[in-house]
Simulated scan of single mutants.
Amino acid sequence: MSEARHVRHVRHVLVLPDRDTAEEVAEALAERFGVAEEPQLVRDALAGEDDAEDAQWLVVVEDPDGVYDPAGLDRLAAEYEGWREAE
C-alpha cells in the first residue's frame, strides 16, 4: 500500500516597514527562492493610525507546494528590518 504525500498550501506573509522595501523584497524572492508567481504587496495600516507614514507593507507569497524555506524567508525579511508572520 502506497501512502500519498499530502502537501499543504502555505501562505507566507512578510511584514516590511515601507513600500520601497516591500518591492525590494519581492524582487529578492524571485532571485533567492525562485518564486515564479509575483508576490502580492499589501498596505497594512497600524491599528488606530490614519497617517500613511504609519503603514507597514506586507509581501504575500503563495506556496502551494510548501517548498519555500520558512527560516530562509525569516532571514530575508530580517535583512530588510521586517519579519515573517506565522500563519
Rank of each mutant, 00 (worst) to 15 (best):
Leu16Val: 00
Asp18Val: 01
Asp18Met: 01
Arg19His: 05
Arg19Asn: 04
Asp20Trp: 05
Asp20Tyr: 03
Thr21Ala: 02
Ala22Gly: 06
Ala22Ser: 01
Ala22Tyr: 03
Ala22Gln: 05
Glu23Asp: 06
Val25Asp: 04
Val25Pro: 06
Ala26Thr: 05
Glu27Arg: 14
Ala28Ser: 11
Ala28Val: 05
Ala28Pro: 03
Ala28Tyr: 01
Ala30Trp: 11
Ala30Met: 03
Ala30Leu: 03
Ala30Gln: 09
Glu31Asn: 03
Glu31Ile: 00
Glu31Met: 01
Arg32Ile: 08
Arg32Lys: 13
Arg32Trp: 12
Phe33Trp: 11
Gly34Gln: 08
Val35Ser: 00
Val35Ala: 01
Ala36Cys: 02
Ala36Glu: 15
Glu37Pro: 00
Glu37Leu: 09
Glu38Phe: 04
Glu38Lys: 13
Glu38Asn: 03
Pro39Ala: 08
Pro39Trp: 09
Gln40Phe: 13
Gln40Val: 15
Gln40Gly: 10
Gln40Met: 14
Leu41Tyr: 00
Leu41Lys: 03
Leu41His: 01
Val42Phe: 02
Val42Gly: 02
Val42Glu: 12
Arg43His: 07
Arg43Glu: 14
Arg43Trp: 06
Ala45Pro: 15
Ala45Ser: 09
Ala45Glu: 11
Leu46Asp: 10
Leu46Gly: 10
Ala47Val: 11
Ala47Ser: 10
Gly48Asp: 07
Gly48Phe: 02
Glu49Leu: 12
Glu49Phe: 09
Asp50Lys: 10
Asp51Lys: 06
Ala52Phe: 13
Ala52Arg: 13
Glu53Ala: 14
Asp54Cys: 13
Asp54Arg: 15
Ala55Met: 11
Ala55Tyr: 10
Ala55Pro: 01
Gln56Phe: 08
Trp57Phe: 12
Trp57Leu: 02
Trp57Pro: 00
Leu58Lys: 10
Leu58Asn: 02
Leu58Ile: 04
Leu58Arg: 15
Val59Pro: 01
Val59Trp: 02
Val60Trp: 03
Val60Tyr: 09
Glu62Arg: 11
Asp65Pro: 00
Asp65His: 04
Asp65Cys: 00
Gly66Glu: 03
Val67Cys: 04
Val67Glu: 08
Val67Gly: 02
Tyr68Asn: 06
Tyr68Phe: 15
Asp69Leu: 09
Asp69Phe: 06
Ala71Glu: 15
Ala71Cys: 00
Ala71Arg: 15
Gly72Trp: 09
Gly72Asp: 06
Gly72Thr: 08
Leu73Asp: 06
Leu73Ser: 08
Asp74Cys: 09
Asp74Asn: 15
Arg75Gly: 14
Leu76Thr: 12
Leu76Gln: 11
Ala77Gly: 03
Ala78Glu: 12
Ala78Thr: 02
Glu79Tyr: 07
Glu79Val: 09
Tyr80Gly: 07
Tyr80Asp: 06
Glu81His: 14
Glu81Trp: 12
